[in-house]
């Protein structure tokens, strides 16, 4: 039986218009052999969750630079839970103050990557923490 290919949704919730970081991450995931569903800019949490379910992804990576992370990231986790899809892990990256990370993790975010994190480290984290579903 062939191995499953890991599927990841990469999206940008909210209003900031800078997706260079998200694209670099998407590209690094592609090079790591993952299938990346890239949903682009200005997504609502509802759109992200609906796409994650239809695409049957193993995890959702959200890039956020606008400062609205404390609202948008927990909202994605909450909606996944409401749809019975809280087995889909959520991680975030972007300009997120250290002080906010503990709160985000207690709201269900698996990991937060701050500026300066290398793409290798993120890919490595995925390899250790996210398994394609059985």
């Amino acid at each position: 039986m062939s191995e499953r290919t890991l599927r990841i949704l990469v999206g940008k919730p909210g209003l900031d218009g800078h997706d260079r970081g998200a694209k670099i991450i998407a590209r690094a995931f592609r090079d790591a052999g993952f299938e990346v569903i890239y949903t682009g800019l200005h997504q609502t949490p509802e759109q992200i969750v609906s796409a994650a379910i239809q695409e049957d992804v193993d995890c959702v990576g959200l890039s956020i630079l606008s400062g609205a992370h404390n609202t948008l990231l927990p909202r994605v986790c909450q909606l996944l839970g409401e749809k019975g899809a809280d087995d889909i892990k959520v991680f975030g990256g972007g300009v997120i103050p250290e002080d906010d990370i503990a709160g985000l993790k207690s709201a269900g975010i698996s990991e937060v990557f701050t500026p300066g994190t290398s793409t290798e480290d993120i890919v490595k984290w995925i390899g250790t923490n996210i398994r394609p579903r059985a």
């Binding site: 290919t5 998407a26 590209r27 995931f29 592609r30 090079d31 790591a32 052999g33 993952f34 299938e35 990346v36 569903i37 890239y38 949903t39 682009g40 997504q43 609502t44 509802e46 759109q47 609906s50 796409a51 695409e55």
Partner: peptide, 22 residues
């Protein structure tokens, strides 16, 4: 397309269809 080298892929067609996501 799938990368012939890594087996990975960037699936970006949804970007144009996001208004139907919900």
């Amino acid at each position: 397309p799938t990368s012939p080298f890594t087996g990975g892929a960037i699936l970006g067609d949804r970007i144009r269809m996001n208004r139907h996501a919900t």
